[in-house]
């Protein structure tokens, strides 16, 4: 392994080398440029303080993303505590869109004709997926990110966001219904 080059420990170089990648990652989870910039700064500060050094750019990147993930979870937790909870019943529900009054499918699900494992290689799909997530209302977005992207279990999410399991399940269902609809409309349907 090569020696650590001195420039790698230069914070200025860090910002130039990793700043955009960290920012992209943060923005995809936080949906808010100002918060994303803040966690990038906090992450690099924490990295700097730890005094750790790396012999390669990619291992440094992975390490930084690891720190960033913790900061993101912390921030989501904080933001959700600061924002008063609306009544769950009044939170926008997509169910009426998809079901009729008797609870039968109004807009019928149509099989997606693509192998999701393969489509991930396509940058365009990724962009659509994250755009669809962006359109989730803030509260749904937060808990959906914790649960699905940061892979936190239900107990953790309930505890951190101060909600009951029943509310969590209802809201995750709504988030998934919306995403399913959005992906059908903007990717799977559009590609037919």
């Amino acid at each position: 392994m090569a020696e650590v080059s001195p420039t790698e420990l230069d914070p200025e170089v860090w910002v130039d080398e990793h700043g955009d990648a960290l920012y992209s990652y943060a923005l995809s989870r936080l949906n808010n440029p100002a918060s994303a910039e803040d966690v990038v700064q906090e992450t690099l500060l924490a990295a700097l303080k730890s005094g750790k050094s790396f012999s390669g750019r990619s291992s440094a990147r992975t390490w930084l993303i690891g720190i960033l993930r913790h900061k993101i979870v912390d921030l989501i937790r904080k933001e959700s505590r600061e924002q008063p909870h609306e009544e769950i019943e009044t939170a926008e529900s997509p169910e009426e869109e998809f079901f009729d009054r008797k609870g039968r499918w109004g807009i019928k699900p149509v099989e997606w004709q693509v192998n999701p494992g393969k489509i991930l290689e396509q940058k365009e799909f990724m962009a659509v997926l994250f755009q669809c997530m962006e359109h989730l209302p803030d509260r749904l977005h937060r808990l959906f990110v914790l649960r699905e992207l940061e892979d936190q279990d239900s107990d953790f999410v309930c505890k951190e966001l101060g909600i009951t399991p029943t509310n969590l399940w209802v809201m995750l269902h709504r988030a998934r219904m919306r995403l399913r609809g959005c992906l059908t409309e903007n990717w799977f349907g559009a590609n037919e």
Binding site: E37, V40, A127
Partner: peptide
Amino acid sequence: VETPTEQTL
């Protein structure tokens, strides 16, 4: 994915 979408500071 470490860089889900290309954004710049």
